[in-house]
Amino acid sequence: MRVVVTIQHPGHVHFFKHAIEEMEGRGHEVYVFARENEVAVDLLEAYDIDHEVLAGESDSLLSLATVQATYEARLLRRARQVKPDVITAIGGVAAAHVATAVRARSVVFYDTEHASLITRLAYPFADVVCTPSCYRGDVGAKHRRYPGYHELAYLHPDRFEPDRSVRDTIDCDPSDPLVLARISSWGASHDVGQGGFESVRDVVERLENAGAHVVLTAEGDLPASLESNQLTTAPERLHDWLAAADLVVSEGATTAAEAAVLGTPAVYVNSQALGYTTELEAQYGLLFAFYDETRHARALEKAVSILEDDDTDWSARRAAMLDERIDVTTRIVTELETAGQERVSDRSPVVANPG
C-alpha cells in the first residue's frame, strides 16, 4: 500500500522514524512530506529519511495560519499525484482534510487534550484517532486507545540505547549532578496565555547553589549572562543528554515525558496539565508537575530535594512503567496497515460469483 506521513514538528520525526523504516521493510511505499519547524528537517536529514518540504517556518501565530494553508494546499496536490491509501500525522489537521479529499484513510495520533483548535479541525475528518490510554476525552467510535506514550515510539528500550558518554564532552565535574533545563518559547497556538518558570536566571542560580552543573536547551534567546549554559549539541543527540542527566526540569511536556520514560526524574513546570504527565506522576513517580501560581518556587524546591535524594531507585520506577506500557511503534504500524487494508478492500472491484 501507499502511505503518506506528514511532519510538522521535530517530535513527529522521532515518533514516526521507526515506523517508516518498518513499513518500508514490509514493502509499503512511504512518502514523507514536511513543514519546516525548528529542527524538523534537520532531523529528517540526520536520520536519512527521504522527504519533501512543502512549506517554510512561521514566526508568529498570524503567519502560522498562512504557512499552514500553504502546506495543506501543497499536500493536497502531492496526494492527488501519489494516490495514497493512508495518510497519517500527529495532530493531523492537514492530513485528515487531505485524506478526505483524496478518499484515503486518515490515522491521527495525538496526546494533547488542551490543543482544542487542532482537535476541532482534525478529529471530525479523521477516520481513526489514536491516543494514549490516559488521554482525557472521548472521540467516539473512531477512538483507539493504547497503553503507552508517544515517547515510547522512539525511547522504548527495544528502540533506543542511550549514549551517556555525552556528559564527557562538557567541563563538568563527574561528582556534580547534571541538570538539563528545557525552556519553551510559548509560541504554539495552545500555549497562548500559558507560562512556566518566572525567571530562567533564578532557575540556574538555585540549582547551581545546590551543587548542580546546569545546561540549558531553549527555544528562544537566552539572557547574555546564561549563554555559557546553553547546551550545544546535534538535535538527534538530545535524548542521550536526557538519559545522562541526573535531573531534567522542563517547561515542555514532551521533554519532561522523554526524561521520565528514560528513567531520569523530571520536574515539569507549566500552567497546563496533560493526561500523560499526570499518569507518569501519579502512577510511576517519574515526573513531578507544578501548574499553579506558585509553580516556580515549588518546582525549584522539588528539584533541589531530588538532587539531595540518594534513596530513590529511579531505574526500578522506570522498569515498573515499562512492564505496563508497550513499544508504541508496533502499534503505529498495526494501525496504518489495518487502515490501508480497509482502503485497498474498498477500492477493489467486486467480482460476481460465476456460480
Rank of each mutant, 00 (worst) to 15 (best):
V304D: 07
L152N: 01
L307I: 09
D323V: 01
M23N: 06
R2C: 02
L44V: 02
R77N: 02
P354M: 01
G187Y: 09
V129F: 01
H9N: 03
A244W: 01
A122M: 03
S315T: 15
Q230G: 14
T119W: 13
E251M: 11
V108K: 01
V261D: 08
E293C: 05
E45K: 14
V93K: 01
E219A: 12
A320H: 10
V4N: 04
P124I: 03
I90A: 05
A218G: 07
F125L: 15
R26N: 13
G187A: 10
V261H: 06
V4E: 04
Y276P: 02
L76Q: 02
G355D: 12
D310S: 12
Y291V: 09
N209S: 14
T264A: 02
V30W: 06
A243E: 11
I183Q: 05
G275T: 13
P132T: 10
T88C: 12
T254H: 05
F125W: 13
A245W: 06
S106R: 04
Q341F: 11
C134R: 07
A245E: 09
G140N: 08
V102I: 10
D346R: 14
M1Y: 00
T334N: 14
V30R: 03
A101S: 13
V86M: 01
A218Y: 01
F288I: 01
P147G: 07
A282N: 12
T264Y: 00
I170P: 09
L307V: 12
V267N: 03
R2H: 08
